[in-house]
């Protein structure tokens, strides 16, 4: 990679807008073009990234322990967690759909926690990984994170069908809110990560 050929705004004594790409003199506080506040690097460093990430992980625990869906049939209450829902789908023989829900609700969130932690540790040199790979990792995290919301839409649609009298009795459990917040917080964590940090250490290390 011909990284040496790149002249960054910071090296030129300028400050680049992360939204529209215009460069300004370092005294500028707000981009005169798109009105984004200009920061050369976040003053709090990675703290917002870690804060949102920890909040997301903490909420992910009750999201899996508590019931996502509570159904009542003939006076018997049946509460099922995310994982129970997946098992139920395999029992119906819908392996493809079971896989989608398992992937969206369990594989993606867990992989995303790990990926954000890797990114945050790598820019602090705790983990050695090439800049190109870190950039790809960030792009994957950013692209795929939203897709874990599938189960929330499943629960909401089922709840609507119940309210309309289509299904006997079914209600979203406390895990639904925890899960939705967990996904939201990890999306905010990824958004708080400044990708320029990945490239800052060029020259310092090989």
């Amino acid at each position: 990679m011909t990284a040496a050929a790149v002249v960054t705004a910071r090296e030129s004594g300028l400050i680049a807008c992360t939204t529209c790409g215009k460069v300004w003199s370092p005294e500028a506080e707000i981009c005169g073009h798109c009105e984004t506040p200009l920061i050369t690097r976040p003053a709090q460093g990675l703290s917002p990234v870690w804060a949102w990430l920890v909040a997301g992980i903490l909420l992910y625990i009750p999201a899996n322990m508590w019931p996502m869906l509570i159904s009542r049939t003939l006076g018997r209450e049946d509460a099922s967690t995310i994982l129970c829902g997946v098992v139920e789908l395999t029992q119906l023989g819908s392996y493809g759909v079971a896989f989608i829900v398992f992937f969206a609700s369990i594989v993606i969130p867990v992989a995303k926690f790990a990926a954000i932690a890797v990114l945050a540790l790598a820019v602090r040199h705790e983990i050695a990984m090439s800049q190109t790979r870190l950039t790809h990792l960030y792009e994957v995290v950013e692209f795929i994170g939203r897709w874990s919301m599938i189960d929330i839409f499943v629960v909401a649609t089922l709840a609507a069908l119940v309210q309309l009298g289509f299904l006997a009795s079914l209600a979203p459990g406390p895990a639904a809110a925890c899960f939705a917040l967990s996904v939201t917080f990890t999306m905010l964590s990824a958004k708080a990560f400044d990708t320029r940090l990945i490239w800052d250490r060029i020259g310092e290390t090989k």
């Binding site: 789908l89 119906l92 819908s94 759909v97 989608i100 829900v101 969206a104 939203r146 897709w147 919301m149 599938i150 189960d151 929330i152 839409f153 499943v154 909401a156 649609t157 089922l158 069908l161 289509f166 299904l167």
Partner: peptide
């Protein structure tokens, strides 16, 4: 804006019911 993700959720519901 998650219209496309909602559709996958609806597809899962259709299988469930």
């Amino acid at each position: 804006a998650m219209a496309e993700i909602f559709l996958i959720g609806v597809a899962v519901v259709l299988v469930k019911v």
